[in-house]
């Protein structure tokens, strides 16, 4: 019996990728950033984005499209639709949005992880994409593997145990 090797696609900070069954999309070092996976279980197609900032409207600087939650998620949905996915079938899983530093602070930067998570939940809700699982917050960095065969997201961390959501 031949073993099908899963093709791994790696994305970096502020990037996203779409893929199909037998593929795995992974991204590393999610601190206050959030990994957002979208999945259609009927076609086994989906995408993963490594999102840095909640809102593109607050920033004038141009940059990688995956940087902003609002832009990245919409682009992923568009690309999936182009590839034949019905938007109504999509579900989402998210991981990340940690506060990496011990001791909360009085400045905004301490809350950026939480802000990213809330912004993403808001966008998913507006786009009517159900959020079916999450592993967010806490104080540790995360590495995410999104398996397009199973639709499962494996969340690993140097400082915490592995979770499958």
């Amino acid at each position: 019996m031949t073993e099908t090797k899963s093709q791994r696609i790696s994305i970096n900070i502020a990037e996203f990728a779409i893929a199909k069954h037998s593929e795995i999309i992974e991204t590393q070092s999610l601190g206050s950033c959030v990994g957002v996976a979208l999945y259609d279980r009927t076609t086994k197609m989906g995408g993963l984005a490594h999102i840095m900032l909640p809102d593109s409207k607050k920033v004038m600087v141009g940059g990688k499209p995956g940087k902003y939650a609002d832009v990245a998620i919409k682009l992923m949905v568009d690309k999936l639709q182009e590839a034949g996915v019905n938007k109504m079938n999509l579900t989402a899983k998210i991981a990340g949005g940690a506060c990496m530093f011990s001791g909360a602070g009085i400045s905004d930067f301490m809350n950026i992880g939480l802000r990213n998570v809330n912004a993403i939940k808001q966008i998913l809700s507006e786009m009517k994409i159900p959020l079916v699982a999450e592993d967010c917050g806490a104080n540790h960095g995360r590495t995410v593997e999104f398996n397009l065969d199973s639709g499962k997201m494996t969340v690993k961390s140097s400082m915490a145990s592995t979770k499958e959501i």
Binding site: I13, Q28, S29, L30, G31, S32, C33, M52, L53, V59, V61, G63, A98, M100, F101, S102, G103, G105, S107, F109, M110, I112, G113, N139, H140, G141, R142, T143, S157, S158, M159
Partner: peptide, 24 residues
């Protein structure tokens, strides 16, 4: 300086918020 804040983890995860905020 402010009071100190401590982190121990992978470099990418620790500084991603710095890259975010300061790149702006």
């Amino acid at each position: 300086p402010s009071i100190p804040y401590y982190a121990e983890d992978e470099l990418g995860a620790v500084i991603d918020f710095l890259l975010i905020e300061m790149a702006i």
